[in-house]
Design a protein around this nucleic acid. Structure first.
Lengths: 181, 181
DNA sequence: GTCTATATACAGATAGAC
DNA sequence: GTCTATCTGTATATAGAC
């Protein structure tokens, strides 16, 4: 990850937004360039191919995931609760990056699949000391995955069955009772 | 769902397989026709457009989901266990249909999103009498979603973190302790 | 009902001017 | 570093023969 120019960032942001809102199919290089306010040629100066563009997005996603984990580790509510709560899309950079990465993974992009797997392993390692056993770690991760999955589906369509407010608090309490060390 | 010709079914099966193995991007009409052993024109006789093809797949998915729910309701292990166990891809028709439908949903296809939501509501209704409260219903569904999500990602890539054998039994036991009525 | 041939559109990528 | 213009491949869809 080199120190990027300003345009590079706005291209990545536009690509991410298109992936989330229009899906992989709508997130073409031309549409991305237009959304970022540059020309197709301008985009291709920063990302020489579609694969390079994907790679840029995924690298950013992994960097944000590492940063986010640091923040969560400091949460007073505890790590398991922090994980579940931040699995619901609140528009934070890491949430958006993960949803975009998931969309990408559905195009059978091996790069995206591997990047997501690395993030998952980062999470599993962080959760392990807070969970009572390996099954409990998997339970927390699977519920997180489920929340992300529903977020990814819900975007742009009818409002989803994603828990909010008191519902979310109850879910966190239930998972903690079941999984907490 | 009209009574289809033989070729119609093999086209849907080929489309489903391509969605699972190659992703939405590889599941083109031409590739589908080739995989089904018909010509592009032959395919277009049965499905006049890509949208018609998607609709065919999704209708089949919803029909299979209803059938599968009937079978699960008769499972001696109980409905919650049956739900979790069959959320791991075992190559059954409904599993394959759901994974294909999820892939489709990632292309921002509103048809797919709505079909999946209907299936989820069918499930929620069936689980409700077996779960201790609404939060417990959501827990089971979210873990199922998480398992499906990982299945959908894992296909064609490195083997995923999907629980198997004893791991799966432990997960089922944990979820049942937490959610069972 | 299934085929071949073809029209239309657009994606990804290149070349080279500024 | 950003642009316009253009090439090439391929996806969806149509027309019409068999």
């Amino acid at each position: 990850m080199s120190r990027p120019a300003r345009a590079r960032d706005s291209v990545l942001e536009a690509y991410e937004r298109l992936l989330i809102e229009e899906g992989p199919r709508g997130a073409t290089m031309e549409a991305t360039a237009a959304a970022a306010g540059v020309s197709k040629g301008g985009l291709l100066y920063h990302f020489a191919s579609k694969e390079a563009l994907e790679k840029g997005l995924l690298e950013r996603m992994e960097a944000l995931a590492a940063l986010d984990l640091e923040e969560m580790s400091a949460a007073p509510e505890g790590l398991i609760a922090a994980f579940l709560r931040t699995s619901v899309m609140d528009g934070s950079p890491i949430d958006r990056a993960l949803i975009a990465g998931s969309k990408l993974a559905q195009t059978a992009s091996p790069l995206a699949t591997e990047a997501l797997r690395r993030v998952r392993e980062l999470w599993a390692g962080a959760l392990r000391p807070h969970a009572r056993d390996e099954t409990a770690v998997q339970l927390v991760l699977l519920v997180c995955d489920g929340l992300y999955f529903n977020n990814a589906l819900g975007t742009g369509a009818v409002p989803g069955p994603i828990p909010e407010g008191a519902e979310m608090d109850a879910l966190i309490a239930l998972v903690e009772r079941a999984a907490s060390a």
